[in-house]
Design a binder for these strands. Structure first.
Lengths: 232, 232
DNA sequence: GCAAATTAATGATTTATTCAAG
DNA sequence: CTTGAATAAATCATTAATTTGC
């Protein structure tokens, strides 16, 4: 572990984007899944004496509650060209992207998108939903992970190359952060700068407060929230 | 895996997102902005060398003023005792906790709560809402930050003390993770262990599914989502 | 040729840092 | 200086690839 402690400095840039594409979302699933449990005993941090409290919990991972109903995307037009991503979502564990989905995501990434905002995620999700089941969080995570991994990959490379060439060219060409221009003036510009801090807004959908009726309310902003069903 | 390439470029360019349907957006920001706009041209494939077609369009997207109006909690019973936290939220900046809120949160924290799950957050938020405006994310963040800061504070102390006493007592007493039991049978137990991975479920509130009625609540998952209105 | 056993990827979470409002 | 908010880094946990034994 601890590979390196990077410290970077930052500055932030901002990227705009603004959506492009309009499209009715065909339906964005509505199933939620639970994850059974997965006890884990992790690294005990330290210091304290030997933790004899090790719990011999067993991990029977067994069943996952497929349930999640039959819903599933109706767009019965997947045509996967090959392997994976069958519509077997049922087991419903984690998102398993199709080639098309990945392709589009990479295209967007190459186009400069790094941290799509809620609206963008929403739209992207709607689009990708045509090729297979997907949720907004998947898109969100994908960008997060992809960005991070591209970064480390690059870092690894630069280090590796460094041993040979003392001076690693900033890879400014290939990695160039193109500006993606939208007909509308959308411009995406992102140089993967560490820190770009944008403002995020979260919304809390307050189920039943005290009343049973749902308040009429709020507005429909996207809502995502980490739910911790149970200790896991 | 890393294959890619050869993807058809689906051009998705239809945008949409229905306006809010029948739903009076009464509160919580509503800062979504649409940019109608026309379709977009995306990066045409890649490979092609530097596309000089990059148009550095500039967009000066203005401000997004979330407006979010004055709305918000109707529970007209705030009783703030001091400074801030007036209903001045309009600018809609950040949560400004009242003493009561902080007090309750600390109480919960001392009681052992560290990472409340969605339901807990919901309830806590509801309670704290009585003392002032507050959203679920605020509760979420508060715990996150408080936990982190207590930890570093403690670390600092232990280090400082270490110079004197080689062995820092785990401060097990004061920091003891009691079990907090709720009237509802909620029990929180958390020893601040680094890693406890719980399962999170995110939900995407897909506006209009196809029906207008909301499903009968399956489970009440909280939803939060990072919205990046604009560069900040 | 399969299916358990391994390994490589990568989706999903949590923790650590950083930024900046007040 | 305090601390709410956000992002990046570090990890954990699944799933698809691969490999291996029969």
């Amino acid at each position: 572990m601890g590979i390196e402690g990077s410290m970077k400095v930052h500055q932030f840039a901002r990227g705009f984007w603004d959506q492009h594409m309009h499209e009715p979302p065909s339906l964005t699933l509505g199933c939620k899944r639970f994850r059974p449990l997965a006890p884990k005993q992790l690294i005990t941090t330290s210091t304290t004496t030997t933790s004899e409290s090790t719990v011999p919990i067993f991990d029977l991972k067994s069943f996952i509650r497929p349930e999640s109903g039959p819903i599933k995307i109706g767009s019965s037009d997947y045509h996967k060209k090959e392997s994976a991503q069958v519509e077997t979502h049922p087991g419903g564990t984690r998102w398993n992207p199709t080639q098309e989905q990945i392709g589009i995501l990479e295209m967007l990434y190459r186009g400069g998108m790094r941290t799509p905002n809620a609206q963008q995620i929403e739209q992207i999700t709607a689009q990708l939903g045509k090729y297979g089941k997907i949720e907004g969080k998947n898109v969100f995570y994908w960008f997060q992970n992809h960005k991070a991994r591209e970064r480390q990959k690059q870092k690894r490379n630069s280090l590796g190359l460094n041993s040979h060439s003392p001076r690693t060219p900033p890879s400014s060409i290939l990695n160039t952060p193109l500006l993606l221009s939208d007909t509308k003036g959308d411009v995406v510009k992102d140089e993967d700068s560490p820190y770009k801090r944008k403002c995020s807004t979260w919304t809390f959908e307050g189920l039943e407060e005290e009343k049973g009726y749902c308040t009429e309310d709020e507005d429909r902003t996207l809502k995502l929230f980490p739910l911790h069903p149970e200790g896991r």
